[in-house]
Structure formats: C-alpha cells, structure tokens
C-alpha cells in the first residue's frame, strides 16, 4: 500500500459518498445517469466476488463491502425512492453497446480463462467506460450541477492516482498488470475533457455548462 493507492481509494470513496449525499440531501437524482450507476453496481459485483473466496485484509474486505453497499444504495435511490426525479429522457445512452463488446473482450483478453478471472476482467473493462452514459447525459443537457462535477472529479482522480500507484508498484515491487493498466489509462483519458472544464470553470466558481 503506497500513498497514491490509498489516496486513490479514498478519492473513490469520496466520489461515491458525495453522490449518495447529493441525492439524499436534495431528495433528487436530477442530472444523474442511472445507467452509469447500474454499470458501476455491475462493476463492483463482478469484481468483488472474491470476497467469497479469498481474504486479503480487513481494509480490503471493508472497502469492498462499502463500495458495493453504497453502489446498490445509489441505484435504489435513483430507480425506487426518488424515481420521480430521475431524468430518464436524457439518460439515453445505449449501454448494450458497452456491455456486449466489453463482455466479449473479457473472454478474449484475460490473465486466466476461469469464471472468476473473466468476471474480474469484465469489471475492469466495464469500469473504464461505465461513466460514458453520465458524460453523454451532461453533453445532452449541456450542464451539470456543481456537486455532480465534484463527484465526477473525485471519480476521475481515483483512477489517475491508481496510474501513479502502478508506476510506483512497477519500480518498487515489480508488480505489473497489463489489463488493469491499459483499462486504467483509457478510463483516465475519458475524464480529461471533463478535468479541463472542472479546472477552468467549476474551480473558478462558475457552473459547468457547455456551449450550445
């Protein structure tokens, strides 16, 4: 565990909590893509099946349970409790265009052709693109609430910090996971345009709105 990995995990946790609190406090999930949140729930579910087969550490187990729990809670708030506020008309990204190719790729390119490993690979690939429905929704409506941009910032920052963590682990531990690294790079690149808008607009006190 190095500082980049830890701050990456905490950044991820911050993102998840920010989103949950935003929805809970405002009693509304307006502007949030339920599809992205379902994809993230799928990501955590397929990745953390090893909760049932392996024990790594108390930290590892607790974080996994928190991530899964919060993820399902978010989906529940969007599709059940605050369903009336869900903006389905703008959440029109076709998720099958992500899930099907990602599923195929995880069968073709993985570390080991076993069910658990294929599901882990699927989760890594899916996570890389799971934010696309949310970004698509923002591009469609042309704006995002500031709190939603904080969520996206921490979610993007998490994988960027993991990239530094992997450089660190390569030099100091000889650890190298090509699947995670390539997917992590793709995932981080998808946030770059958003990072730019976040720094140039949101951090200067302006609302994130895109030119019409």
């Amino acid at each position: 565990m190095n500082i980049f990995r830890l701050t990456g995990d905490l950044s991820h946790l911050a993102a998840i909590i920010i989103l949950l609190l935003k929805i809970w406090k405002s009693r509304s999930c307006a502007g949030i893509s339920g599809k992205s949140q379902i994809l993230f729930a799928m990501v955590f579910t397929t990745r953390y099946l090893d909760l049932l087969t392996a024990y790594i550490s108390l930290y590892n187990t607790s974080m996994k349970i928190i991530y899964i729990g919060c993820s399902y809670a978010t989906v529940y708030l969007i599709y059940a409790k605050f369903k009336a506020t869900y903006d389905g008309n703008h959440d029109t990204f076709r998720v099958e265009f992500l899930v099907v190719p990602v599923g195929g790729l995880s069968f073709l390119v993985n570390h080991d052709f076993s069910p658990l490993e294929i599901l882990w690979t699927f989760s890594i690939y899916l996570e890389a693109v799971a934010i696309l429905p949310q970004l698509f929704m923002i591009s469609k409506t042309g704006e995002a609430e500031t709190i939603t941009t904080h969520y996206l910032f921490f979610l993007g920052l998490y994988r960027a910090l993991y990239l530094i963590n992997w450089v660190w682990r390569f030099y100091f531990e000889g650890f190298f996971d090509m699947i995670a690294i390539v997917a992590g790079v793709v995932q981080t690149i998808l946030y770059c345009d958003f990072f730019y808008l976040y720094v140039t607009k949101v951090l200067k006190g302006k609302k994130l709105s895109l030119p019409a």
Binding site: D50, A54, I56, H111, N165
Partner: peptide
C-alpha cells in the same frame, strides 16, 4: 513479470 499476483487492489 506480467502475471498478476491476485487482485489486492480495489
């Protein structure tokens, strides 16, 4: 090495 040593990351 290109072999993963389990998935200790989250």
């Amino acid at each position: 090495t290109d072999k993963t040593v389990g998935h200790d990351e989250l």
